[in-house]
Design a protein around this nucleic acid. Structure first.
Ligand SMILES: [Mn+2]
Ligand SMILES: [Mn+2]
Ligand SMILES: [Zn+2]
Ligand SMILES: [Zn+2]
Lengths: 143, 143
DNA sequence: ATATAAATGATAATACTTTTCATTTAGAGC
DNA sequence: GCTCTAAATGAAAAGTATTATCATTTATAT
């Protein structure tokens, strides 16, 4: 189950962020899309209803949403970032190198490894990035 | 043990790439640095001895070296990439969010997870990215 | 030595991201 | 509701990263 617009908005308030129309629009757009969106794609979507919102506001809003863990950020290599509404709990990504499809998966935990790393290096782990790149079934069939 | 310049050069030949002075210079620079270098940093280093080599050539050479798995590419979030000579065998990264220090670690395997993902999604996995972000011991002490 | 496909560097184009700053506004306090 | 203020916004520019184009050069096979 994914987060609702309601909860996202509440989280913003809780952390002292103002609930502006622009931020509502971004939240609405991201919560209503099943896909991962790049900042630019999100901007286009937001602009359908709110043509005056600037791309910079998208970036600024995403920064907050990621910090509050309300959206998940994806680094698919290159300088490609995209975002989607966060699913509660941890999940990771499987990305098709051919068509770009992204599949979320969960049920894999790194806590033990994080503890090992802490013991061995003294790093206090704040987060991680686990992504698999491969070719999806479709793309494999269409040679 | 890390790869040698010799072996990197040999691998280029083997795969039909010409062994140009520029490529030698990039290999030398990358093989002689213990750190992960951004394309720009690598360019600066290469230019110390070969001032005419362009940044574009660095990008092009890195693309090949990564493809041949002679260097490992790192995505530290944002649009930040950096590179270092590959250590034989798999390893992953631990990155300090504060000072940028990168620690390689190995001994963690994802083969089993990859098989599960293949069964469940039909994705043919080509690679993955596993990176931890945290604060290193130094940065934690210096408040 | 010659031929040729590959590689290079200069340049420009594109894409992505962040900074700056004048203006507007959400929300707190009355 | 009205006032105040810090926060947020949009426009613009700057900065950075990456890729494409193309004329020239060059590594290597013959
Ligand atoms: Mn996701
Ligand atoms: Mn490494
Ligand atoms: Zn695909
Ligand atoms: Zn550090």
């Amino acid at each position: 189950m994914r987060l609702t617009k309601r909860k996202m908005a509440a989280a913003l308030r809780e952390h002292g962020y103002k609930l502006t129309p622009q931020r509502r629009a971004v939240i609405t757009a991201i919560a209503s899309s099943p896909d991962h969106l790049t900042p630019t794609a999100l901007h286009r979507k937001v602009q359908q209803d709110h043509p005056t919102i600037g791309l910079v506001t998208i970036y600024r809003t995403l920064e907050i949403l990621v910090k509050l863990e309300l959206t998940c950020e994806l680094h698919a290599g290159g300088s490609c970032r995209s975002y989607t509404i966060a699913a509660p709990g941890l999940h990771h990504h499987l990305i098709c190198s051919d068509c770009g499809e992204v599949i979320d998966f969960s049920g894999y935990y790194l806590a033990e490894l994080e503890q090992r790393l802490y013991r061995e290096t003294g790093f206090e782990i704040e987060g991680h990035l686990l992504e698999f790149i491969g070719r999806c079934q479709n793309c494999r069939q269409n040679v």
